[in-house]
Design a binder for these strands. Sequence first.
DNA 1: TATGAATGAGCTTTCATTCAT
DNA 2: TATGAATGAAAGCTCATTCAT
Lengths: 199, 199, 199, 199
Amino acid sequence: MNGKGENIEILHTRDRIVQSALRLFSRKGFRGTTIKDIAQEVGVTEGAIYRHFESKEELMEHITEKIAGEIDLLLTEEVLSKEGIKERVEALVESLACYAFNNPDSFRYMAVFHLLREEDEEEEEGRYLPGIKILHMLKEAYSRGEINVIPEVALSIVTGTISRLFEIKEMGLTEVSEEGLIDEMKRVILRSLGLAPDL
Amino acid sequence: MNGKGENIEILHTRDRIVQSALRLFSRKGFRGTTIKDIAQEVGVTEGAIYRHFESKEELMEHITEKIAGEIDLLLTEEVLSKEGIKERVEALVESLACYAFNNPDSFRYMAVFHLLREEDEEEEEGRYLPGIKILHMLKEAYSRGEINVIPEVALSIVTGTISRLFEIKEMGLTEVSEEGLIDEMKRVILRSLGLAPDL
Amino acid sequence: MNGKGENIEILHTRDRIVQSALRLFSRKGFRGTTIKDIAQEVGVTEGAIYRHFESKEELMEHITEKIAGEIDLLLTEEVLSKEGIKERVEALVESLACYAFNNPDSFRYMAVFHLLREEDEEEEEGRYLPGIKILHMLKEAYSRGEINVIPEVALSIVTGTISRLFEIKEMGLTEVSEEGLIDEMKRVILRSLGLAPDL
Amino acid sequence: MNGKGENIEILHTRDRIVQSALRLFSRKGFRGTTIKDIAQEVGVTEGAIYRHFESKEELMEHITEKIAGEIDLLLTEEVLSKEGIKERVEALVESLACYAFNNPDSFRYMAVFHLLREEDEEEEEGRYLPGIKILHMLKEAYSRGEINVIPEVALSIVTGTISRLFEIKEMGLTEVSEEGLIDEMKRVILRSLGLAPDL
DNA sequence: TATGAATGAGCTTTCATTCAT
DNA sequence: TATGAATGAAAGCTCATTCAT
């Protein structure tokens, strides 16, 4: 019982660390965020962070995996479960945009996390995880003749548009409602891929 | 002649600093790049940087202004000089994508430079300069009924797609030629905005 | 008890920093003293200083305020509490000279601290605090006809003599005892102000 | 003739260096003054200083010797040439105070120059040159019974008062004329030494 | 003589990390 | 588990000095 109580405490602190780190990393960058920043936001001292994560690096990797998992789940359950490329693209725009608007820190983090490490010169890794899966989906549709747009360009249209619109919204450059933006994106992206419903 | 020779020397070192800093800032971030990194790449000692720029900050501002100026020139001379929204969008995709492929460091820098500073928590500035100008152009076309896409979404489609495709190419995820990618983007983006030539 | 022990430790290091900084600043100047010098004398690394003081500047300001407070207390409690200008001057010489001989670092610091900053060209501030208070006292005595010496000159006689004698003693240029010097100063300064006991 | 012309040039620049360095050293300290500061004030570049002085150190030593020589000359010609201790003290106050008011940079420099070096920890040197000579004079007068004040205290009265009054005047804390201040000092210092003319 | 780019040592400061408590 | 003092490496920057021109 004692152990249980402690465990709950740990989880709480640990979660708050992750939440604060996510928020700060996504806004100020990995290097721009200090352990002290995180500790202060959580309300503990710097040393306490190291009870939960071995290093700042490990903390970041934890967050990266967490978000990658969420996005992956989204793709698997909300998008790839659908039949038909049109339905899949519609679901992709819908679910990814919703995810962005509801989890701005996570989306921002994912969008820039390859810019956050900046470790060694040109370190390229197996990142861009979600993109790869979508690219695969689009390549299949392309080879089956379901869309007539080069898959890499199709991928750019879908994810690039959502990312940029998210940024525009974050900057306060639009007053259109989230729903309005999502519907418009769906309509226009489908049209761009030759999947317009009204054709 | 003497003065000339000296001047050339000065410009050389200064220019090499700018070039290296641009390359490194755009790849490793502002904080991720050290003065030592830049100095080593240029082949001088750290102190020499400070003969040409008062601080790392000032060096960054110089680069930012330089690139903002280049993009602005591009928009003014290559895009806004055209008549008709279709011609303008075509020119925009063409010139921005070419700029990206020919000046990858500059484009990468511009795309991420608001992520590089990471100064104080949520510092928002008058950045995203090029976007504003394009948004203005699209809003006018929209109000005139020349396009039927919400301007913010239209902006996202155009600039988001180019940015994402640039990233995909940089990651080596496509083998399509630059020309092929640009033509495809032009075709698809025009279609998305209801400006398809074949309609 | 635990808390007590920790507290004592903290005070110790912090106090030792102040003590060493005071000693070094007063002898080698603000710029002439490095954080490394202080850290070495205290027996910690440079970074440790910054747990206790935000900057070298702040450390100096702390010391300045500490000493200004001590001198001010001295004036208020030992000098201004007395009645009669003769008694006050006697007490001033006595207490200031004793302070100098017993706290040579502090006195030296106070005597030169406006020379230690050397910030911007000719920055004049509200310094020389103790002097102002004494000048005020002398001006009152002068306007009441209790002394017949121009107050600014009287102030110079009193504080200038003590300062210079302190320096002479520090340089090892005299073998007279502290008591002997103080008594002689009292006698001669009183005579200079027309307050000689034998008149 | 050519050589002559050049020589004149050298002297000019060299003199201007000395003048600027004296001004800056006396106000901002040795460490607080950079070679660049001096060069800028003179209107040349940093390298040019090294045409005239081997190092910053040497420049300082030159200035120190120059001023020490001036003061020494003053003592020899204006003070020690007089007969009688009363006449000598009067001349000392007169000439030293005039020197201070007419050459504030030099006097300030001399007053603080042992604080400017701040080289190694407790470097004591054969400085305080003028003081030594005056002390000698006062010791003789004391042993002859011409004054009844301990020589070290007498020295402190004379030089300490002048120094402090100079500082007070520099701070703008008095509106009394220079002449008035000097006359008052003469009167009061003589009285303090038991040499009052009215006794 | 003078320039000014460059050096190199040293400075203040920051920060991830450790560790005794 | 948490604290917070301390470390140590590295950062940005300064500056006396040198040297090719």
